[in-house]
């Protein structure tokens, strides 16, 4: 039970960070916290059903994918900084949405 609450709390921290941050790197850090939360959830679900082996297999894959995604995201952030000389998310208003 405590694990589930931890997952929810980490989730809220991550989402809050993504929504409120003005710095692009901090948005990525918020995403990382979300992924931490969900990793904990997978391990917890595996532990509860005594299916840790499957859960570990999933978590290893998730970690590999997470690293690749973060690397590409870092590349994009560095690119934005080269063009804009700023990492302020408020400058991303050229896009209308």
């Amino acid at each position: 039970m405590a694990n589930a609450i931890t997952v929810i709390l980490l989730f809220i921290i991550g989402i809050y960070c993504i929504l409120v941050s003005h710095n692009l790197i901090r948005v990525l850090i918020g995403l990382e916290i979300l992924i931490k939360a969900v990793t904990l959830l997978v391990i917890f679900c595996g532990y509860q059903t005594q299916n840790t082996a499957l859960a570990q297999a999933l978590v290893i894959t998730i970690i590999v994918i997470e690293v690749v995604m973060m690397t590409v995201a870092a590349g994009v952030v560095v690119g934005i900084h080269r063009q804009n000389n700023s990492l302020d998310a408020r400058n991303i208003r050229k896009l209308k949405g």
Binding site: T39, I63, M70, T71
Partner: peptide
């Protein structure tokens, strides 16, 4: 979850902060 734990420690606690 030992094996996944090792991955988490080496990759997420090691590699990703270095990347950031």
């Amino acid at each position: 979850a030992n094996i996944a734990g090792v991955f988490e420690l080496s990759v997420c606690a090691g590699l990703i902060p270095v990347l950031f």
